[in-house]
Design a protein around this nucleic acid. Structure first.
Lengths: 328, 328
DNA sequence: TTGAAAGCGCTAACAG
DNA sequence: CTGTTAGCGCTTTCAA
């Protein structure tokens, strides 16, 4: 039985290849000159020894950081409970793995965006991905982080933005409802402080006003629970409503549940639409009409940008496609 | 405008407090002796300077690693697409954050569990959380990792196991179906190579045999898609089936969808149950009867154990509770 | 094209 | 109780 050897270091590889540590480093890090022969010898040695570089050491000397922090703004820590956050973190973790990096998840109290400073001071932070971004957060980004921050939501001159075209998706949805004969269309919105959700509301307003129809808005918060309550309010305030646009699929599902409880037929009496196209949207009864939201794609792009270091395009918009199903 | 000062290091704090770096380290790392006065001076200085320790440097000198790797075994990389994986990663990321650590996500080909070695060689890996664990993986764990690995699924003498009591949850579900008059109960299972899914099947078999009822098994894979197809097979092979137990909620939803397509009433003609109690289970029509699966709790416990370093209890089972709703 | 040497920021003996 | 002294594993000038 072989003695429990410690994992090989660059030193070991260098020795095995008969070169200096510096040379081995150049070859393996792919930086700087190296004679082809040397290069081969080093690579071979590394391979034979099963050498795996230590990202911590590398990060230390380069000051490049060793983890990507996903920062979610919200009133309280329960914002982290949203499955959406898990999807972002999961995608980010996949991006990080090959770099030898990891992902951490932090809640940032909406009221104290300055908490970002602490993260910026942490030399182990290689990049930041902002979720539920607000103007205040953008303003609080220390310039030291320039080029290592990406936002899923609104951005700024210093922070590239990655987001779904929820305005387009919502517009398509509302137009579809109009095209299928609905005229008294209400909407359950997202939290008012979230600008990106505002784009959906804006699109709804626009389409409605273009069609000369009245605007009917009820505040929501992306959850099914709130969707249920909101549906009740819609029913109470505008009993003749014939369609409800949900800001999210969860919202829509809550709406449908409440409607059903009230004996209202979906889509017979009231059409209901969502936004996100979660996997289960196709499985519910009635199957949900909704618009796509490529969360994993967006998170992957944002994480990649935050890690890249070089400037990304200021705004990247991912298209949202209407998915017609049975609910509306 | 202040010049862009670099983040303060331990050296700065020590200087500001008028002590040596070693002393400052002892105080801030909370290890070793320190006079109360000194302690206060150091803490104050650190606070004033906004000192944040560099986890990378700390990990380097301690050899403790800087990230927790979630390893998911599967035939191909698409296993990472399961929302379940995102939930595990999200929970792990929350556990890691306060330690200054991050989470990375890796796919491990089922056929080459030896890939774990590479991860073990990586000094930046602080711990491993295994998902979809197989016996082969357990056997491939290098002893160097002892105490820094946790498994969500089956475990071994060296690897503590964290899992839901899916046997108990499934048994409760099947008994419930029996109690409500169902007698020809089929089950859509998980992949055969996954031992933990086997516990559910075992429980089903047990209850059925105790009741003197015939066993009707169709293989599945946790997905709704496969659930749909499986439901078709059940209908074809045993047309008199009056209940179908799904290995997961997604499976059950697929089953229901297929049944509905075939004009079979749920739960009128056939009762359908799931497992997981995903948030949407309460929102579907009919609302899904299922058993709870505290994924976040389990992942949190596993991640904590993998990071703790000290031995954890070999097996931790999280209870699964039957949730009676409309589908069965 | 390569090697020697100097750290990155921190902790851990070991003296004092 | 505190300071001194060595590094952890890697990259990066600077000479050779």
């Amino acid at each position: 039985m072989t003695t429990a050897r410690r994992p090989p270091t660059l030193e070991d590889v260098a020795a095995a290849a008969g070169v200096s540590r510096a040379t081995a480093s150049r070859v393996l890090a792919g930086t700087g000159y190296a004679a082809p022969v040397t290069r081969d010898r080093v690579t071979a040695a590394a391979d034979r020894l099963g050498y795996v570089p230590n990202p911590a050491a590398r990060a230390l000397v380069r000051g490049s950081g060793v983890r990507l922090v996903v920062v979610v703004a919200g009133a309280d820590a329960t914002v982290l409970d949203d499955p959406y956050v898990d999807r972002v973190v999961g995608a980010a973790a996949r991006v990080c793995a090959p770099y030898g990096l990891g992902v951490a998840l932090h809640w940032l109290p909406t009221r104290e965006p300055a908490g970002l400073r602490r993260l910026a001071e942490d030399r182990s932070v290689g990049g930041l991905v902002l979720v539920n971004t607000t103007e205040a957060m953008l303003a609080a980004i220390p310039r030291a982080l320039r080029g290592r921050v990406a936002s899923i939501g609104i951005g700024s001159a210093l922070v590239p933005s990655f987001d779904v075209d929820n305005g387009g998706g919502t517009a398509a949805t509302v137009r579809h409802l109009y095209a299928t004969g609905r005229r008294r269309i209400a909407m359950v919105t997202g939290p008012h402080w979230l600008s990106c959700a505002g784009r959906s509301v804006g699109a709804y307003r626009q389409v409605m006003s273009d069609a000369g129809l009245p605007v009917r808005l009820v505040p929501g918060d992306f959850t099914a629970r709130r969707g249920r309550a909101a549906a009740g309010e819609v029913l109470a305030r505008w009993p003749d409503t014939d369609a409800i646009v949900g800001i999210s699929d969860a919202t829509a599902l809550g709406v449908i549940d409440r409607l059903r409880g009230a004996g209202v037929g979906v889509p017979g009496d009231v059409a209901v639409t969502g936004f996100d196209d979660i996997p289960l949207a196709a499985m519910t009864t009635p199957a949900l009409t909704t618009a796509t939201h490529p969360v994993a794609q967006i998170a992957t792009a944002a994480a990649t940008a935050a890690l890249a270091g070089r400037p990304a395009p200021p705004v990247t918009v991912f298209p949202s496609r209407l998915v017609r199903r049975a609910s509306g």
